[in-house]
C-alpha cells in the first residue's frame, strides 16, 4: 500500500511538472509554431519560384538544343553607374538561360567603360551617353540597347505651355523663381526633386549639365512622392521617369516637343539619354557569346527587362 501510494504520488508529481512546463512554454510554443508557418511559407515561395523558373529552364534547354553547342564562357561589362539596374537585370536574366555563362559587370562610369573596351580589358563598355567622335574614331561602336526618358511635370492648374532647356536650367538652379518669368501665371515655383543617389536625379542633372547646382525646395525619396507633391501643390515642378506619368500631373513639352516615347525615339525630346553597350568593332565581329548576348538584349526578353526597369525600348 505504501509503495503503491508513492508510485501514485510520483506519477501525480510528474503530471503537475509536465502541465507546468507546458503552461510555461505556452508563448514559446506559439512563437515556434509561428516560425514553422514562416518556413513553410518561404518553402512554398521557393517552390513557386522553382515552378516559375522551370519553363524558362525548359526554354533554355530548347535554345541550347537548337544551337550546335551550348554557350559557355564569360562576358565582362564595364561602365556607367546609371546603367547598373539595367545591366544587373539583363545579366541575371541571361545567366538564368545560360547557366554555363558568367556575365559580370563593373560600374565605374561611362568614360572609363569605353576606355576599357577600347583597351581590350572589357567585352562591352556601358555608356549612358552617346559616344564621342574620338571614341568612334578609335573603333568603338555604339549599340543603343534602351533609352532613359524623363518627364518634367507640373500641377494640372499650371498655365505654362512648355519650357525651353535654358528655362528648365534656370528654374532648377534657382535663377527663375516665379512662373510669370517662364510663361505662366504669377505663381511662385516650388522646385521638387529626388534625393541624392537617385538614378532619375543623376540623369536629370547630367543631361542639363547642372550636377550639384540644383536648389531643391523638396527632396523626396520616391517617384510616387514626387508625383503626389506636384499634383497637390500649386506652382510645383518635378521630374519623374517617363513611364509613370499619369493624369494627376501635366507633363510639359520641352523645347516645343511633347514628352512621349515616340518623340524620344525620333530624337527631338532632349531630356533623354541612350543606354549604350559599346563594342570594339561591330557586333557581328564579336565572339559568338557576345553576339548571342546582343541577340538576347535586343530581343524580346531583353527589351521586356528594359521596360520593366522603366526604360524605353529600342526597335
Amino acid at each position: 500500500m505504501k509503495k503503491k501510494s508513492t508510485t501514485i504520488l510520483a506519477l501525480a508529481g510528474a503530471v503537475i511538472l509536465a502541465a507546468g512546463s507546458l503552461a510555461g512554454c505556452g508563448s514559446n510554443a506559439a512563437a515556434s509554431s509561428g516560425q514553422t508557418d514562416v518556413t513553410s511559407e518561404s518553402a512554398s515561395q521557393t517552390s513557386r519560384a522553382d515552378a516559375a523558373s522551370a519553363p524558362t529552364d525548359q526554354a533554355s534547354q530548347a535554345d541550347a538544343s537548337g544551337q550546335e553547342e551550348s554557350l559557355s564562357g564569360s562576358i565582362l561589362m564595364v561602365g556607367s553607374t546609371s546603367m547598373e539596374t539595367l545591366a544587373t537585370a539583363l545579366a541575371e536574366g541571361y545567366m538564368e538561360l545560360h547557366p554555363e555563362v558568367t556575365v559580370s559587370a563593373e560600374f565605374v562610369g561611362s568614360g572609363a567603360g569605353i576606355e576599357a573596351v577600347l583597351g581590350g580589358t572589357a567585352d562591352i563598355g556601358n555608356s549612358s551617353r552617346n559616344l564621342k567622335e574620338e571614341e568612334k574614331a578609335a573603333g568603338a561602336v555604339e549599340n543603343v540597347v534602351a533609352i532613359d526618358g524623363i518627364a518634367v511635370c507640373v500641377d494640372p492648374a499650371n498655365t505654362a505651355s512648355g519650357l525651353t532647356k535654358q528655362q528648365l536650367i534656370d528654374i532648377y538652379t534657382g535663377k527663375v523663381t516665379n512662373w510669370a518669368q517662364a510663361g505662366g501665371a504669377d505663381v511662385p515655383i516650388v522646385v521638387v526633386g529626388r534625393e541624392a543617389g537617385s538614378g532619375t536625379r543623376s540623369a536629370f542633372e547630367e543631361i542639363l549639365g547642372i550636377e550639384d547646382q540644383c536648389a531643391y525646395a523638396n527632396e523626396l525619396d520616391s517617384t510616387g512622392a514626387v508625383m503626389a507633391k506636384v499634383a497637390s501643390t500649386p506652382g510645383a515642378i518635378g521630374y519623374v521617369s517617363l513611364d509613370v506619368v499619369d493624369d494627376t500631373v501635366t507633363a510639359l513639352p520641352l523645347d516645343g516637343v511633347e514628352a512621349t516615347a515616340e518623340n524620344i525615339k525620333a530624337g527631338g525630346y532632349f531630356l533623354s539619354r541612350p543606354f549604350v553597350m559599346a563594342t570594339m568593332g561591330d557586333v557581328s565581329s564579336q565572339s559568338p557569346l557576345v553576339q548571342d548576348w546582343f541577340a538576347y538584349v535586343l530581343g524580346e526578353e531583353g527589351q521586356a527587362i528594359a521596360s520593366s526597369v522603366g526604360l524605353i525600348t529600342v526597335e
Binding site: 534657382g174 511662385p188 521638387v192 525646395a217 523638396n218 507633391k229 500649386p234
Partner: peptide, 20 residues
Amino acid sequence: YRLERWLFRDSATHQFTGGA
C-alpha cells in the same frame, strides 16, 4: 503654403517650399 505665400509675397529671395 497659403501662409507662406502671404508672408513672403514681396520677397525676391525666398525659396517657396509648398508648405513642407
